[in-house]
């Protein structure tokens, strides 16, 4: 792993440089027009400074985004409507609730599918096929239908997030519960283990690596689901609402800050799951 630190840092540095170059290039025209209207003829260095500090740039420079992130998280009270922490929490709560619901449903479904043959034969092909369906397109329907039933706010978003994350979990879990080979299952039989014992002592431990792989995919999907669920409903709060408001009012820095916040949120959650996975693997006696 340490072998890849230098290459990763090099590429990141290259990307940042590329970004600054892009910011100068993309904002040049806008700045040049304003300056020409004002009758000013700034020098090259002055132009560069202006392109990198434009208030509503086409592409904000990285330091502008970091500045906005800092301003909207650290300097504002958390309860403020302009605080990014507030919006991130709205999205995070929906994503986590949906993730919990999706995980429970996905695991239950997988257990049922593994034990009931008819269910596997009839339902599993549909679950697999539904992976090819753009599920996110259903988000507006869920919002509208639940809104008609008087449900608004957290729950509809959580349901969309749950809907997105139960597939990878169910698929991974089914694969995992099937992972023990015939020798292991025969061994359990020779010990005359009950079906419950086979499940708790053989199938479930064997499925954990698959479950965690699914959980990590599902976690990222849950964040995407919670964000996208905020788009069609015109939500007032949340990272998706920030994206939408930013795109309406041309506040590019705000969009980028919300995007970076979403990326940090998602990467942290997936990272936490990865840490939990390593912990569980060590408890189960895997080599570090």
């Amino acid at each position: 792993m340490s072998r890849s630190i230098l290459p990763v840092l090099t590429i990141c540095a290259g990307l940042v440089l590329l970004w600054y170059g892009g910011a100068i290039w993309m904002n040049w025209q806008v700045v040049a027009d304003t300056q020409a209207r004002a009758g000013a003829t700034p020098g090259l260095m002055e132009m560069v400074r202006l392109t990198l500090n434009h208030a509503r740039p086409l592409l904000p420079a990285p330091h502008q985004i970091l500045d906005e992130l800092w301003r909207s998280t650290a300097t504002l009270p958390v309860t403020s409507r302009r605080s990014l922490v507030h919006h991130a929490w709205v999205t995070l709560s929906a994503a986590l609730l949906g993730f919990g619901m999706g995980t429970a449903f996905g695991v239950l479904l997988a257990v049922a599918v593994v034990h009931i043959r008819a269910l596997e034969r009839s339902l599993m092909p549909w679950i697999v096929a539904s992976q090819a369906v753009p599920v996110l397109a259903l988000a507006p329907i869920v919002i509208v239908a639940l809104g008609a039933m008087g449900l608004e706010g957290l729950l509809p978003k959580a349901i969309i997030a749950a809907y997105l994350c139960f597939f990878p979990i169910a698929i991974g879990m089914v694969k995992g519960l099937r992972a023990p080979d015939a020798t292991a299952r025969d061994l359990m039989r020779t010990w005359s283990a009950t079906q419950a014992q086979v499940f708790w002592k053989l199938r479930l431990p064997a499925s954990l690596p698959f479950l965690f792989a699914g959980l990590k995919v599902a976690m990222a999907a849950a964040v995407v689901g919670a964000i996208v669920a905020e788009l069609p409903a015109g939500a007032q709060a949340g990272l998706g609402a920030r994206l939408l408001a930013g795109s309406y009012f041309g506040q590019t820095i705000q969009i980028w800050a919300a995007l970076v916040a979403a990326a940090i949120l998602s990467a942290t959650l997936v990272g936490l799951l990865g840490a939990a996975e390593r912990l569980v693997a060590r408890r189960m006696g895997a080599r570090a």
Partner: peptide
Amino acid sequence: RGLLPLGNLVAALPVVG
């Protein structure tokens, strides 16, 4: 070696945003 970890990181990000 530089791209692979970054590519895997992007898989965890909400790119659609």
